[in-house]
Design a protein around this nucleic acid. Structure first.
Length: 307
RNA sequence: GGGCAGGUAGCUCAGUCGGUAGAGCAAUGGACUGAAAAUCCAUGUGUCGGGGGUUCAAUUCCCUCCCUGCCCA
């Protein structure tokens, strides 16, 4: 007997939150967020986190539960989400997973091979990167794992570093671990993706950025800066925050910061679209106007009951 | 009305001492398995403002018209 899990994906600003919320009310269930930035406390306006009232109305899991200095990743997400899903199933609820972090959703659906990152190895690799450069790291990888090295460019140092890390920890090439990994599961994922005309999505993004500024994004970032945080930590290497830090430090004007936030959000949305497009499991739900979300909710509801 | 500076890719501009043109940004497509809102890759044909002239050849030189900006009346 397979247990259903609803997944609502889509690019930033596509209305995942409101669709998930309406659906959760109809189904009498709870929401699991799949968003690599909403997990952090103190990131409110810039991550478009649901407001306190919404969070109180319907239980949202994996939102607002980590400190900015905490490290989180796809595997922890997988484990945390699986645990919550199992709890919800135990009380006869169909979990709704909503979010735009493609890798997290993939980790949840397919599982991710179990090789945790190692801080010591990582800092050694960082040191090598700074001393000898990207080409050197790529050459090192070529020596131990030529197949993986061939599939990644030296410039993409993050992927090269992870491949080296995995090799150092396991003595095996990362691409073999990827291929060989399979997780047994009795979960049945019903995945949906909200799809908007590109132009409409972009103008919604512009409007949302303007509204973030009106809501006080600058003050939010200033208070983080006041606590000593910088975009050097991963949680703040985030669209909306890194640009604002640039403004606060005086390197760009506020107009430029806003322009960059809009642009970088568009770029981000585009990458999300590329990610979801290649995964045929997502059923596309076409949107053209915010009012459509009610009928989209209805459609998901019908499909879920049928399957 | 006169003078000056411009009109080249969606935008800002470079350039061709005459052989039909190229940067940045924007945009688009893509990669991605424990940092993913991260990290990285690829893609530039446009009546070079319109018309005419000179020339084997004009976006480039000449004439003319139109448009924009600034200055003088």
């Amino acid at each position: 007997m397979q247990k259903k899990v609803i997944i609502i994906a889509g690019p930033t600003c596509s209305g995942k939150t409101s669709v998930a919320l309406a659906l959760a009310k109809q189904l009498g269930t709870e929401i699991i967020s799949a968003d690599s930035r909403q997990v952090y406390r103190n990131l409110e306006i810039g991550t478009a986190k649901p407001d306190k009232k919404t969070l109180a109305e319907i239980k949202h899991h994996l939102v607002d539960f980590l400190e900015l200095s905490d490290v989180y990743d796809a595997s922890r997400f997988e484990n945390d989400a699986l645990k919550i899903i199992s709890d919800l199933h135990a009380s006869d609820k169909i979990p709704i997973v909503a979010g735009g972090t493609g890798l997290y959703l993939k980790a949840l659906m397919d599982g991710i091979f179990d090789v945790p990152s190692d801080e010591e190895i990582r800092s050694d690799l960082f040191a090598l990167l700074h001393e000898k450069g990207k080409e050197f790291l790529h050459e090192e990888l070529k020596k131990v794992d030529p197949a993986s090295a061939a599939s990644m460019l030296p410039q993409n140092w993050k992927r090269v570093m992870r491949a080296l890390e995995v090799y150092k920890l396991t003595g095996k090439p990362i691409h073999e671990l990827q291929k060989g990994y399979q997780r047994d599961t009795d979960l049945e994922f019903l995945s949906f993706q909200l799809e908007w005309p590109r132009e409409t999505l972009y103008s919604m993004i512009d409007r949302r950025v303007d509204s973030m500024i009106e809501q006080g994004l600058e003050a939010e970032v200033r208070s983080l800066a006041g606590l000593g945080f910088t975009p050097a930590i991963n949680a703040l290497n985030t669209v909306g925050y890194k640009e604002m830090f640039g403004y606060i430090s005086g390197s760009i004007s506020i107009e430029e910061a806003i322009r960059l936030i809009k642009r970088n959000t568009r770029h981000y949305a585009k990458r999300q679209l590329t990610w979801f497009r290649k995964d045929a499991r997502y059923e596309k739900l076409y949107m053209d106007h915010a009012e459509r979300s009610a009928s989209v909710v209805q459609k998901i509801n019908t499909l879920v009951n049928k399957k």
